[in-house]
Design a protein around this nucleic acid. Structure first.
Length: 627
RNA sequence: GGCGGCGUAGCUCAACAGGUUAGAGCAUGUGGCUCAUAUCCACAGGGUUGGGGGUUCGAGUCCCUCCGCCGCCA
């Protein structure tokens, strides 16, 4: 059995955020799940690197497009490596092999007459450097971003005829279980109710150079979808690699709902035109919302998965993402919900069951796996319950209903806490019934081992630690989940550190990864601005705050001496700050950060590359007003 | 404007193709245990399933209509 899993290739105009991480972690979980079942798995992810946004961003930053995409692509790869994502291949659309195949496909379709040149007339905004659609215009017909009336210009371009295949696609989608969840299928069928306009697949080089050149016209590059979607084929070695077809037959594309149309409409039609079979499944998930809003740069509510996982744990984050979102629907991200999940489900239910079981084993059985001395009816009843829960978990996980799969498994975990309470091995020990107590603990150890294996797709690191702590040596496979004699009698079983420490504190201000929202209108009055007491301050002392990797404690003259705690430790060494003049907010309400009083804040600028303090252009007297 | 989805306890979600007193978890209250990461266990309160009408022996589940939210297409 084999399965081919893909994430979208991520567009490198931004660094990875929680949305990217969700898709990738879900696919990683599914990949691990199938590997656990001994399937062959090919897992493709990567980056999409062409297009005008890249060209423009590179220009703004004074970089070459290649340098920009190299950097951001690398940051995606680093992020996935940090999370331990087991991708089979990381593809980049700027790779030679990919370019070659894209050109080959374009040539093939051109020769078949599927691609033709036509003159396009549209409203072109010079500011945006592209054509605008009706939606992007305001009431006066101006570009919303640039407040300029776009020019009506004519341009020759190449087009792909989608309409020709519309009725075929409608029929195909109706007859096949292509799209999951089913309500997205209805949405796509709705899109196919009306005539499909031809898809423009080129850009003249005079406007856009950063792309793959059309093989049949050196003055153009191909645009967006013909470049990006084909990664799913080039990633498995199409057309040279003899294995590509076997993988393709089992292809599962995981995407977020924003790219439904290209994947559900353009892509099947492209494949059909090429004479290739349609992919097997399209699995569509919703958005992570923050304060009921989609995450976006302009709102400033981007959640960073790496800093989140550094504070709370990788497996904790994975568990939350799998547990909290009903695949297909939008879900809300909040720290409260995240911490509740960690404390209630992981620390109190699962972690505690593990800890109390292993603690008793350590205390009364010399840290060794005790023997089974005959099962009582109650033991058997619990094992049966666990078995059914694991079967349901398997079924629900296969159906991508991760939140329900985990909820079902948790019923068995909670029942474990009921079972240990009813059997009360600590009382049995006091009564001298050591054999019986050993059996109860062994039942629990076996069950915990099964939980750890079953949960390894979701929480690989903690599962591994737990299994190692119990000296589990048998293979990590789905069949072993049902083997309730999988542990070695007499082998070491130690409790180790708690797997999931409770989170006692509310998220600290400086650790908050959600940035503050902007004011609704985007404007403040001059009076509001005047309320802010900005002054020049001279740093006279600086030191790291113990046990906080982001914080520095500073003493600043402005002109009186003040203590300020600032989250800049990752960008500045204490030594280099002494003597520097900075701009401070002097009337910020003092607050305690990590128990240290902070009387104000430093102004600093931040972009993707780092952070820099705002300083006066020449030396000023400490305390000088800034206005 | 067209099409589609959603609306179930304070919150997040269940309830297979209509079938017994609509279920969990979190939160709240009370009691118990002590092996355990102040964890666990038991019990309790809490819902006219957005409103109204209809089909049916029986509807959260099907039909109509109104209200509210969202999405897609134009």
């Amino acid at each position: 059995m084999r399965i081919y899993l893909t994430t979208p290739i991520y567009y490198v105009n931004a660094y990875p955020h929680l949305g990217h991480a969700y898709t990738t972690l879900i696919v990683d979980g599914v990949a691990r799940f199938y590997r656990l079942k001994n399937w062959q798995v090919f897992f493709l992810t990567g980056t999409d690197e062409h297009g005008d946004k890249i060209q423009k961003t590179a220009k703004d930053k004074g970089l070459s497009p290649q340098a920009l995409v190299d950097e951001i692509s690398e940051s995606f790869k680093r992020t996935w490596d940090y999370f331990g994502i087991g991708y089979s291949r990381f593809i980049r659309t700027t790779e030679e092999t990919h370019k070659k195949t894209v050109q080959r496909v374009l040539q093939q379709l051109y020769e078949k007459g599927e691609i033709y040149q036509d003159e396009y007339e549209g409203l072109y905004c010079v500011g945006c450097e592209r054509f605008l659609t009706a939606k992007e215009l305001d009431e006066q017909g101006r570009c919303k971003d640039h407040q300029k009336t776009p020019e009506l210009i004519k341009e020759k371009n190449y087009f792909f005829n989608l309409e020709k295949y519309r009725s075929w696609l409608k029929d195909y989608i109706q007859k096949n279980d292509l799209i999951y969840p089913a309500f997205y299928k209805e949405e796509v069928l709705n899109m196919l109710e009306e005539e499909l306009p031809p898809l423009c697949i080129s850009r003249p080089k005079k406007r856009l150079e950063w792309g793959i050149e059309l093989p049949f016209d050196k003055d153009y590059v191909t645009y967006v979808w013909f470049d990006a979607l084909l990664n799913y084929l080039t990633g498995i070695g199409y057309p040279e690699d003899p294995n590509w077809e076997a993988w393709w037959k089992e292809s599962h594309h995981f995407i977020a709902k924003d790219i439904l149309k290209p994947h559900a409409v353009y892509w099947p039609i492209m494949l059909k035109a090429l004479g290739l079979p349609v992919y097997k499944k399209l699995l569509v998930h919703g958005y992570w919302l923050v304060d009921r809003l989609k995450m976006s740069k302009s709102i400033g509510n981007i959640v960073d998965p790496v800093s989140l996982s550094k504070t709370y744990g990788k497996d904790q984050l994975r568990y939350f993402l799998f547990r909290e979102m009903a695949f297909g629907y939008d879900a809300e991200f909040s720290f409260e919900a995240f911490i509740t999940r960690i404390n209630a489900d992981l620390a109190n239910d699962y972690g505690n069951l593990v800890y109390r079981t292993l603690n008793l084993t350590e205390k009364y059985f010399n840290s060794c796996v005790p023997p089974l001395n005959g099962l009582t009816e109650e033991d058997q009843a619990y094992l049966d319950m666990v078995k059914t829960a694991l079967e349901d978990y398997h079924k629900l996980f296969s159906e991508l209903q991760f939140h329900r799969a985990l909820e079902r498994l948790w019923e068995a975990i909670r029942e474990g806490n009921v079972y240990i309470d009813r059997q009360a091995p600590w009382s049995l020990i006091k009564k001298g019934e050591l054999d019986r107590a050993g059996t109860v603990l062994r039942v629990l150890l076996e069950v915990i081992k099964s939980f750890a294996i079953a949960l390894s797709p979701v929480m690989p690191e903690t599962s591994q630690i737990l299994l190692e702590n119990m000296s589990y040596e048998r293979p990590l496979s789905w069949e072993e989940v049902f083997n309730f004699k999988g542990l070695k009698e007499g082998a070491a079983a130690k409790k180790g550190k708690p797997l999931f420490p409770r989170i006692e504190d509310k998220p600290k201000e400086e650790e908050k990864v959600v940035e503050e929202k902007k004011e609704e209108t985007g404007f403040i009055s001059i009076d509001e601005f005047r309320k802010i007491d900005l002054r020049v301050g001279k740093i006279v002392a600086a030191e790291k705050v113990p046990n906080a990797d982001k914080l520095l404690r500073l003493e600043v003259l402005c002109p009186e001496k003040r203590q300020i705690v600032s989250g800049i430790a990752q960008y500045y060494q204490p030594e280099e700050l002494i003597g520097k003049e900075v701009i401070i907010v002097a009337n910020l309400k003092p607050s305690k950060i990590r128990g240290i009083l902070s009387e104000g804040m430093l102004l600093a600028a931040k972009d993707e590359k780092g952070l820099c303090l705002v300083t006066p252009e020449k030396e000023m007297a400490p305390g000088a007003k800034v206005s």
